[in-house]
Amino acid sequence: MKRIIIVISFVSSTWAAAQITPPPIQRSIPTSRGLTINSRKGTLIEKKIINVGKFKNLNIQKIATKDPSDNSSETFLGMMYEYETFDEISKKTLTIDKNELGKLIQALQTVEQKENEKANQETKYKFVTMGNIEFGSVYREKLSSWVNYIKLPSHYLNQNLMEFNKEELKELITILKKGEQEL
């Protein structure tokens, strides 16, 4: 009996050691350098918030951070949303830097162009920012219309999805262009 147990354990350990290890996961190269000043430790950080506009329940803001010790500064676009439940009130600001904002505006303008063309089949577009904000558009063949959306990163079961139409897409692009000029 001992021999059988020893043989089984030897065979199973040999089998486990012989398994091929999976290739390492390659992450995509970030298009943003991230918020360097905001993440500094042991120094006083100044933050100024200027409202650019409001879209649905998003407050779009210019956010400027500054480290007075070396006068370095950063500006970026913030998208602040708030929600309230029975037990909780929360505000969260997601950020988009200037380079990424330009790409987002171009993507939304392309979507706006595509929505003016006649679509015959279900078509979808999406643009995901470094902060995991998803902007998208879906052509619903059954309804013969486009539905635009912004999907915000959220808690496990909390869905933060805002849907809007073509006219509101134009409004969003205008607000984002204004924000880009202020950065």
Rank of each mutant, 00 (worst) to 15 (best):
R27W: 12
D87C: 01
P23H: 09
I6M: 09
I105Q: 03
P23W: 10
P153S: 03
E122T: 08
E163C: 06
L176S: 06
F127L: 04
L35A: 08
K118H: 11
S137I: 11
I89T: 12
T129I: 02
S154V: 06
N59P: 04
V111C: 08
E115A: 11
Y83D: 08
A64T: 15
K151P: 03
P22G: 14
L176K: 00
Y156M: 11
N57P: 00
T110R: 11
K124M: 15
E122K: 06
S154T: 10
Q61P: 01
I5P: 07
E182V: 10
I45P: 01
S144K: 11
L44R: 11
A64F: 10
N160H: 02
N120F: 07
F135V: 05
I63L: 06
T65I: 15
E134I: 08
K56E: 15
D97T: 06
N71A: 15
P30D: 08
L101V: 05
L172D: 05
K91T: 12
R140V: 10
Q109F: 00
T31V: 15
L101E: 00
K47N: 12
E82G: 08
Y125M: 05
E141Q: 13
P30H: 05
G179K: 03
K177E: 10
K126S: 13
E117V: 11
I25L: 15
F86Y: 10
V52F: 02
K103Y: 07
S72N: 14
S13M: 10
I60M: 01
E88I: 06
R40V: 03
K124I: 15
N51L: 12
T43Y: 11
M1A: 11
Y125E: 05
K48V: 15
K177Y: 03
T31Y: 09
V11Q: 09
T85Q: 07
Q26G: 10
T75W: 05
A119C: 08
L77D: 04
T123Q: 11
K92H: 09
T31E: 14
T65Y: 06
L152K: 00
L94T: 03
S144V: 07
K2W: 07
I29E: 12
R33L: 12
K151S: 06
G102S: 14
P22S: 15
Y156W: 10
L161Y: 00
V7P: 01
N160Q: 07
R140L: 11
R27D: 13
N57I: 04
E168M: 01
R40A: 05
F76A: 01
L172G: 03
Y83K: 04
I45G: 00
S90P: 02
F164Y: 05
K41E: 12
I96V: 15
K47A: 13
M79E: 00
A107C: 10
Y81W: 06
N59Y: 01
L157M: 14
M80A: 02
M80Y: 01
S32Y: 02
K98N: 11
P24F: 13
D97K: 04
N51G: 10
P24M: 14
I45R: 01
L172Y: 01
T14W: 13
N99E: 13
L94C: 07
K151M: 06
L183P: 02
L94R: 00
T21A: 15
L161H: 00
V128K: 08
F86W: 03
I6K: 07
M1T: 07
